[in-house]
Structure formats: C-alpha cells, structure tokens
Design a protein around this nucleic acid. Structure first.
Length: 308
RNA sequence: GCCUUGGUAGCUCAGCUGGUAGAGCAGUAGACUGAAAAUCUACGUGUCGGUGGUUCAACUCCGCCCCAAGGCA
C-alpha cells in the first residue's frame, strides 16, 4: 500500500510553506486537505496558497468545487484519489497538506461514508428534532435500533443522531454495523502524518496577525463578491470562518472591526479543535515549528520519514 | 467641591427582606464516518473596591476612604 506523506496541524501553523519546500526537495505535488479551500472564489479567507507561495509546485484540490453546493468528505476522497493517482502517473510524489482531519482520515483510513445525505430523509428527522422533546425522542429511537451509537452520542448532538438514523433508513444497516464492516477493510493509503506544533499563545498571536493580513488583502471585498454572485448565507461555504462574520458586518448587523475580532476568536477556537483532533491521532509525529524555517522543518520531516 | 450611578470570575454582567455567590463569553480538556472552518460534551474559590461599625452572621445594612462614568458648580 502506498505511503502518503501528510503535513497537518492547526490553522496558521505554516503547513503550506513546509509542503512546498518538501515538494521542491523530492519532486512532489501538493494535495490540499482543506474543507474550505476546495471552494472556488474563496481564496483570501481560506488562506489558499498564492501562485507566488507555490513556487511552481503544482497544487491540487484547490477551488475545485462551486461554493453553492456543499462538498463532503466522501466527495473529497474521490477527487483527491484521482489527483493522487495522476501525480503518481507523472512519476511525482503526492504530498497531502491540510488541516481538515476528517478529510485526511478519508484518504488514510478505512471509512465507508455509507449512504449519501438525503434531504428527503434528513429533513423530516431534523424537523422532528426541533420540536419540544424531539431530541430526546430521536435519541430514544436510535437507542432501540442501534444502542451502541446511542450510547456514544450525546442527546444534544442532534446532527450525529440524525445522521445515524438516516444511515439506518437509507442502508438498512446501523452505523455500528457499517463501522464494523470498515474495520475489516484497508484504507486507500497508509498515512505518514507530520504535525506542526507551536506554543499555544504564539499560535494564537499568529492567527490574529494573519486575520489582520487577510483584511488588508481584501477579505471584505472577496466576501462581497461571493454575496453579489448570489451565494446565500447559511450555505456550507458561507459557514467558513471569516465569511459568515464579515457577511454579517456587510449586512449592517455589526461594525467591521467587531466582525474582525469575531473572526480572530473563531479561528482560535477552531485551531484548538484541530489540535484535539490531531492529538488523539497516534500516527502524528509532532515537529516543533517555532523559530524555524520551512526548509529546515521539511528536512526534519524527510529524515524522520526515513528513520521512524 | 457637591450630587448621581457604578466598582462581584480574564471580560460583560446577574444576585442576596442579611445565612460567605452564578450566567454568557473567554480559557482548558474531550468527542467527531457523505454538513467537519460544521456540530456536540465536560470543567466555575472569586481579597463580591478598601476600611471601620451594627449583627450570632455582612457581598448584602450604616459611616468614612479610594477608583470610574455622568451631571451641577
């Protein structure tokens, strides 16, 4: 099974530059693993690498989907797998780089992603959950058909409870049964994950600075362009950090300064969630990034890859 | 100088006819299988501005002082 190098870590940890350095060193091409960079027209707010930052290294899975229809981990895996195989065919090395843990797992772990979301099934379930006592009833229903999942999921985690019921209605198998089937299979690739690590306070300061830079680079204009193009608030893409907050400011709900503060706050919260995700992944080899150049870090990754 | 209103958790504030206090946010930790930058969970001892007094008991009532905002001179 092919081994995939994956550069991961929280937002603003410097993954992009490290991936590029690594590719320059080994003849690689970057496969982005980012749930927001896949959308077209969302560049500044997603910190999509610019042409200058790419240094001629080909990048894939950037801006490959229209922002008005949601992408998904399963869809991502399909497209990313195609991209990886194309890189292989060219005789180059695919280097996965991104902060969306689920997308990385979609490539490197056996995950079924059984049953595409179906609004005909999901809609009524969500409506039922919204009624008084509805969450409790749905959770009780799940407990009957799939006690293990019910025990695993909190009553308030409506999204996952609904999804578990949806999978059962759509496939006739419970989530627990589906997951058991997964365990018997292999993932598409074996992941060699390298995570970039920073002292928390330093990372938070980098985030604040980067948001200011995004504003200077024209984030507000980018959001306005998307809204003018008809992208509705509440779509998956518009739930991206930086987009939902600025959109509200543009609608006059708050000042731009206040929106910027919220973007920073939301980004810091997000970085922390990413850390929780990657920390529990036993495959991740953590690399101290503070005070080091991207090239230096990429050298360490190569060395560690050869001598585990 | 006088009057008024405030001073309670990192921040914004609630509260007590007197029985030593609690929300939201932040922070920290965790979860996560076709929405994942989403969604969900857990964690609250702080000189209740200071100091005297009344009281069995004061964050709560009274006096004085300090600080902030506003008003009057």
């Amino acid at each position: 099974m092919q081994e995939l190098i994956v550069i991961c870590g929280p937002t603003a940890s410097g993954k992009t530059a490290v991936a590029v350095e690594l590719c320059l060193a080994i003849g690689g091409e970057v496969i982005s693993a980012d749930s927001m960079q896949v959308y077209r027209g969302m560049d500044i707010g997603t910190a999509k690498p610019t042409a200058a930052e790419m240094h001629g290294v080909p990048h894939h899975m950037l801006g490959v989907a229209p922002p008005d229809e949601p992408c998904s981990a399963a869809l991502y895996r399909e497209r990313a797998t195609e991209a990886i195989e194309a890189v292989n065919a060219r005789g180059n090395v695919p280097v996965v780089c991104g902060g969306t843990g689920l997308y990385i797992d979609a490539l490197t772990r056996p995950m079924g992603f059984f049953a595409r979301g179906d609004s005909g099934v999901r809609g009524p379930l969500e409506a039922a959950a919204a009624e008084p006592g509805g969450k409790e009833r749905l959770h009780a229903t799940l407990r009957e058909i799939d006690p293990e999942s019910a025990a695993r999921l909190h009553v308030n985690d409506v999204r996952r409870v609904v999804r578990a019921l949806e999978v059962y209605r759509l496939t006739g198998r419970t989530l627990t049964q589906q997951r058991a089937l997964d365990r018997a299979r292999d993932g598409a690739y074996r992941g060699r994950l390298f995570g970039l690590s920073w002292p928390r306070e330093v990372l938070y300061r980098r985030i604040d600075r980067r948001v200011d830079q995004m504003m200077a680079d024209g984030l507000a204009d980018e959001v306005r362009r998307l809204l003018d193009a008809g992208l509705a608030e509440g779509t998956t893409a518009m739930q991206g950090i930086g987009y939902k907050e600025i959109a509200r400011a543009l609608a006059g709900e708050c000042g731009l300064d206040e929106a910027v503060e919220r973007v920073k706050q939301a980004t810091r919260n997000y970085a922390k969630r990413q850390l929780t995700w990657f920390r529990r992944d036993e495959r991740v080899v953590w690399i101290e990034a503070e005070g080091r150049s991207a090239r230096d870090i990429s050298r360490e990754i190569l060395a560690r890859k050869e001598n585990p």
